[in-house]
Each structure stands twice: as C-alpha cells, then as structure tokens.
Amino acid sequence: MATDERHDDPQHAVALVAATLGGVLVTGQSRMNGELSRTIEAPIQAAVYSFGSGLLLLLALLVVPDIRAGIARIRDALREGRLRWWQCLGGMGGALFVAVQTYAVPLVGVAVFTVATVAGQTGNALVVDRFGIGPGGRRPVALGRVLAAGLAIVGVAITVSGSLGEGGLAVLPVVLAVLVGGGVALQQGVNARVNLESLNVLSTTAQHFATGTTLLLVIAAVQLGRGSYSPTDFDGVPWWAWWGGLLGIAYIAIAAWAVQHVGVLVFGLALLTGQLGSALLVDVLWPTAGREVNLSMVLGLAVTLAAAALAGWFARPRRRVRG
C-alpha cells in the first residue's frame, strides 16, 4: 500500500525564501526606476538606463570563464534544438515590465503598481504551469492552486479599491501594469528553462538583459524617429535611484534558479509576499504620487499573504511512502 506524505525539501524552502527576497528587490527597483523617470521626465530613457546599466555590468563579468561557458551552452542548446528561439526572449517581458514600471510608479505609487502587476502575474502563472512552459513540466491546476490564485486576486482588488475610492487613480498605468505582470509569469518560466541549459544563473541573466536592452533600444529608436524622444541629462537624480539595474540582475538570477524548484505560480506568490510588504513600507517612508497607505492596502496585504501561504502549503513536495 502506498500513501503520500509531505516532507521538507531544503531546496524548496530556500527557493521560497529567495522568492520573498526577490519581491523586496523588485520593490526597490520600482522605487528607484520610478524616481529616475520622474526626475528626468522620460520613462523610456529611464528604462534604457536601468536595463543597459545591468547589461554593462554583466558584460564586464564575462571575464569569468564559468559565465562564458554558460552562454556557450545556451548557444549549443539552441543549435541542437533543446531550446527554442522563443524561450530566449524572456528579456523582452522584463524590458516591457521596466518600461511600464518607470511610467506607472510616479503616477500611482509603488504599492498600487505592485498589486496590479501581481494580478496579471498570478492569473497567467496558472497558464504557464498548466502548459509546462517552465522547466518543471506540466503542473496540474489543482483546486488548492486555483483557490490560492483567486485569493491573491481578491487581495489585489481590496488593495486597489481604496485608491479607486479616492477618485485620483490613473486607470491606464494600472491596466498596463496588469498586462506586463502577465508577461512576468511567462518570463519566469522561460528563463528557468534557459537556466537548466546554461547551468549558470549569471549566464542566463546576461542573455535576459541582452534581449531586453535590445528591445528598449528599438523602442527608443522608434520614438526618436517620430520626434517623441529627445536625449536628456540626468541632473537632479538622487544617488540611490541609480541602482535599479543592479537589483534587476539579482532578481532575475534568483528567479531563474528558484522557479525550477517551486514552479511559476508558487514562486510568484512568494515573490508577492516580499513585494507587497516592502511596497507598503516604501510608500509609508518614501511616498510617490502623494499616495498614502490606507486600511484597504493593509487588508489587501493580509489577504494576499494568506494566498501565498496557501499556495506554499499545497505545493510542498510529496514523496511516496510504502507501508
């Protein structure tokens, strides 16, 4: 007779902690890039700087043989068909996320931007796991996972409801944040797949940043051709707003490793734990767009944290025990 018994997997637990830390990093990046965009009044240029500075740092790290070897393994996997070309485009989702981030955060604040992206990310994560886009293969859409995702979306709705009641919430930034949040779930899945081939998170991250920077440069070139883009200086940018690219590197590296162990949905919900808690703290200490933290934000945080805990419980690994 065989029964299922839950057990503790050290890598699973570490991946959940890492995902929570990743959420803190994303919040910090949002505040930095939002301030950079607000100061220079040019969201695309701020996004190009954020992604481009990260890429330059990663290119400097190519002196490390293991990173170069990882990039060579990605190339070989593409050539031999173990990777599809579209699986190497995760950086485009990241680029669009940063572009919307630099536009939306100055308008709606870090907390509202965060919960809007989480809505898109949580919904699409079920699809990504169901179709096996990540390295863990197809993951069943079990009732517990659906309940966790639904509870997270309820938490998002509660959080945003307070701002809607104020009558001052810009709709377009929120809609765009939901859309790029959906792209983040896909990005996490394909980057984790690339990391299985590269065997080096910094090699995976370098490939991600190269693709994303290319897309942002194309967008900037289109704006320049249409006359809607003009180079600007960076006078007045505070010292702490320059480091969004570095935090982006750390986040992508964490995601590329952790998604392999917990799947896209659970990673996203653990990420949410760090994101929302730190986003509320940032908006309390360094508010943007005149937004103040209110009761609905705190209640929404509590509900979404419960969703993350529920998803983590249902996703804990099982082993077969014979008896």
Rank of each mutant, 00 (worst) to 15 (best):
H7N: 12
A270L: 12
R318W: 08
E35F: 05
Q87N: 08
E197F: 09
L57G: 14
I74S: 01
A42Q: 09
V146T: 12
S37C: 12
G23D: 00
S37V: 10
A307L: 09
E41W: 10
R316Q: 14
S50Y: 13
V171D: 05
V160M: 08
G248F: 02
W286F: 07
H12A: 13
V112H: 10
D8I: 15
G22I: 03
W286P: 02
G150Q: 04
A210I: 09
A157I: 08
V201T: 13
R291I: 15
S163Q: 06
F209P: 01
R193G: 09
R316A: 10
N200I: 11
H261R: 15
V98Y: 10
R31D: 03
D76A: 14
G91W: 03
V259I: 11
G300V: 00
Q121Y: 08
V64F: 15
Q260A: 15
F209W: 11
A185C: 07
Q45F: 11
V174A: 06
P317H: 13
A42I: 05
L78Y: 01
I219Q: 01
V64G: 12
A125K: 05
L55C: 08
V266N: 12
L25H: 06
I219F: 04
V259P: 09
N33T: 10
A241Q: 01
L280K: 00
A289G: 10
T20V: 09
A306H: 06
D235N: 11
V259F: 06
V174Q: 07
T213F: 11
V110S: 00
A19K: 13
A15R: 13
D129I: 08
A221K: 08
V262K: 06
A148T: 06
Q45Y: 10
L21S: 03
T114R: 00
V48G: 04
Q101D: 04
W242M: 00
